[in-house]
Design a binder for these strands. Structure first.
Lengths: 186, 186
DNA sequence: GATGGCATCTTGTCAACGTCAAGATAGGAT
DNA sequence: ATCCTATCTTGACGTTGACAAGATGCCATC
């Protein structure tokens, strides 16, 4: 990271992941080009393959990063379900590139061991917020409560990212999300 | 459509759209290849360009079809908000290829006139179900109610399609969706 | 401190792709 | 009968992901 160009980049793996996040925010995860990443990092066109094998390998690494970061964000939001939902939406908007890759499993290797572990950590963090709610009714309801909460947060985030929401909802995703998500918790 | 191979296909535009739906269900909308579609239809590799201009043009046509079909489905579900939500999820699962294209505006021309019209028809049909609900509270609440309903249905559908849901939710999307969506209407 | 091993990166190549330009074909109007 | 024009083919160009083979330099070992 000294800026001098040596034969060995020194931190190419990290540089490529960072460049990939930028590129995905610009053109989306599907239009990502390994050769473009190589140009951004100042290395030859075949250099990325050494670190990630192929394009799916790079996206697998990004998705894993994403699930780990999401797990942290959800854990930090504590036991408040509404806060967790708002944090979920906020994560999607702030880490748009990560989020978009995470939920396009056809682009990466969804059975990768590290990725599966990270995804399960995020899933646990997500269910933790719901299990804090008072239990009511029959068994299995808690699962469906969790799924309802996940669905509304995920749906709002996805629609926001797709630009499908009318301008009326405002500019600040956290505020808009809170207004919508609280309709479930009632 | 006689099966004989003439110089003029006769119904190439329709054949290409049908082939595209098949291909998208197999490999996703991003990995769609125009040359593959041409092979499936039995025409030369450049034939698709004549009907759709380019790849984005073909996906624009598919997205337009999708919004029109969704508008019909929602209109047919009547004034019941829960039924509309279930119909939304059912549409996404049954017309997976259409649905996946519709909400990836970076892949097509989102400002195309026909597409915008179809999308607005679908949006109107969606809001119609919510406006039938008894109004409560301040103005603007109806918009947010609609957005909450759309979010939970869209989120559930998206998570289902991404394969992100645990196996416990079952095989039949309509039943699973109803159990989840009804938690909002309470 | 020299040497060898090995991860890292480069160079060269290939098939497949989207797109464009130019030409061939045929159906229908005049 | 003739031309017009939409439809489709052929050929080409630049870009991409992937693979193979070679170049480079760090690092442990002696």
């Amino acid at each position: 990271m000294t800026g001098t160009r040596t034969y060995h980049h020194g931190d190419l793996r990290r540089a490529l992941l960072a460049a990939a996040l930028e590129a995905i925010e610009e053109v989306g995860p599907a239009a990502l080009s390994l050769r473009d990443l190589a140009r951004r990092a100042g290395v030859s066109h075949a250099a990325p393959a050494h670190h990630f094998g192929d394009k799916a390998g790079l996206l697998t690494a990004l998705a894993t990063q994403g699930f780990e970061a999401l797990a942290e964000v959800l854990a930090a939001s504590g036991d408040d379900l509404l806060a967790a939902g708002v944090a979920y939406v906020d994560f999607a908007v702030r880490h748009r590139a990560h989020f978009e890759v995470m939920f396009r499993p056809e682009l990466y290797r969804a059975d990768d061991a590290e990725l599966v572990a990270a995804r399960e950590r995020a899933g646990s963090a997500l269910r933790a917020g719901v299990s804090a709610l008072p239990s009511r009714g029959e068994p299995g309801d808690a699962d469906r409560d969790a799924l309802a909460a996940w669905s509304i947060a995920h749906g709002f985030a996805t629609l926001w990212l797709a630009g499908a929401l009318p301008g009326r909802v405002g500019e600040e995703p956290r505020d808009a999300a809170r207004e919508v998500l609280k309709r479930l918790a009632r």
